[in-house]
């Protein structure tokens, strides 16, 4: 079963991205549990698959306005879907890279995939509840969802 430290690895690196690249840190709001039949996705989602000691997925999902504002703060003038996907993919990539490093070599972390709109292929762990960690940046709300079950 995922422990607090492992869960924090994902949360810390998701928020670290904002501290490092978005001029203003993100705030973690109250985390809660969601079941496998619930859907928590915004306009853009970056997903990494996890396998090994745990299996499932971890994704960062954010509304389009948040991604556009983020692009603006990074000095980007293009705010197209592709650019927004780049940002969400970059956050997922940060999660993947750090998770590979910090969770140990028994984990397999997939190459992140980026999704615009409601992802059909995103399924949460059935045998366990998933953690929904709302992340607030400026006035926007995004979420980190950690859906892992024992491998």
């Amino acid at each position: 079963m995922l422990n607090e430290t492992q869960l924090k690895v994902f949360v810390d690196h998701a928020t670290h991205y904002f501290s490092a690249f978005a001029q203003e840190p993100a705030i973690v709001r109250v985390p809660y549990l969601i079941s496998h039949d619930e859907s928590l996705v915004y306009d853009y989602t970056g997903v990494i698959g996890v396998s090994g000691a745990f299996r499932g997925c971890v994704y960062f999902t954010a509304p389009a306005r948040m991604m556009q504002y983020l692009l603006m703060t990074q000095g980007e003038t293009e705010h197209s879907q592709e650019h927004c996907l780049d940002v969400v993919g970059e956050i997922a990539n940060t999660l993947a890279g750090n998770a590979r490093r910090e969770l140990g070599s028994d984990f397999m972390i997939s190459v992140p995939i980026r999704i615009a709109g409601k992802p059909e292929q995103l399924t949460l762990a059935r045998s366990a509840r998933s953690y929904a960690i709302p992340i607030q940046w400026r006035v926007y709300s995004a979420a980190l969802v950690v859906s892992l079950e024992d491998g």
Binding site: L2, T15, V30, P31, Y131
Partner: peptide
């Protein structure tokens, strides 16, 4: 803060 409550979510799950 919210990140301090992560552990609570884990315990609630258990």
């Amino acid at each position: 803060g919210g990140d301090e409550l992560i552990g609570l979510a884990v315990q609630l799950d258990r």
